[in-house]
């Protein structure tokens, strides 16, 4: 497990689509360990995607139980090749991103998603996530496709400067 620097925009990897990952590839679990180690070093961080720490693979870690706001959650999720199967209950909420430490944006996300992925042992999972956990997973999966939260802004009133950048999640 390593603590890696979090890449910030305009690092070109953040705008790249991550290639497919073959089931069983040992690189997957190794990157998940780095994601968790790096998340641990950023208090308040509830999710990270592999390209944010310089790995060109489809892996994310999400743990919204670390958030100060109580919400339904599955604890620490380590997900390889996550894929959303169904999304519903769309709502606009305010998000931040460690790759843009000084900005916040209002983004429309599904409040309920059903997804499939592999865990750190390359076992297949199917999960239903709701609320903030669903939002965090969509934000991280977007990173795997080179989509950043600013790309999802819908109005000129949806972008804000963060007053205290230390609180980036």
């Amino acid at each position: 497990m390593a603590v890696l620097p979090v890449l910030t925009y305009p690092h070109p990897l953040l705008k790249e689509k991550m290639p497919p990952l073959s089931p069983g590839d040992p690189q997957g679990p190794a990157v998940l360990r780095d994601l968790v180690g790096t998340m641990d070093s950023h208090p308040g961080c509830v999710g990270l995607a592999a390209p944010q720490i310089g790995h060109r693979i489809r892996a994310i870690a999400v743990d919204v139980s670390r958030s100060s706001r109580p919400c339904e959650n599955h604890g620490l999720l380590r997900l390889l090749t996550p894929q959303i199967l169904e999304a519903s209950q769309w709502k606009v909420g305010r998000e931040g991103c460690l790759s843009f430490p000084d900005l916040l944006a209002n983004v429309k996300r599904a409040q309920k998603i059903r997804l499939e992925a592999f865990n750190e042992g390359w076992e297949k999972l199917e999960l239903v996530c709701t609320g903030f956990e669903a939002v965090a997973i969509q934000h991280e999966i977007d990173h795997l496709d080179g989509i950043l939260f600013l790309d999802r802004i819908r109005s000129s009133k949806d972008l804000f400067e963060r007053r205290n950048p230390q609180a980036a999640v």
Partner: peptide, 21 residues
Amino acid sequence: TDLRTHVTPGAQGPLYSLVME
């Protein structure tokens, strides 16, 4: 019809963001 811009710190110089309606 509406234009907002922000300049925030960035790793390779200030980051400029612009949203227009």
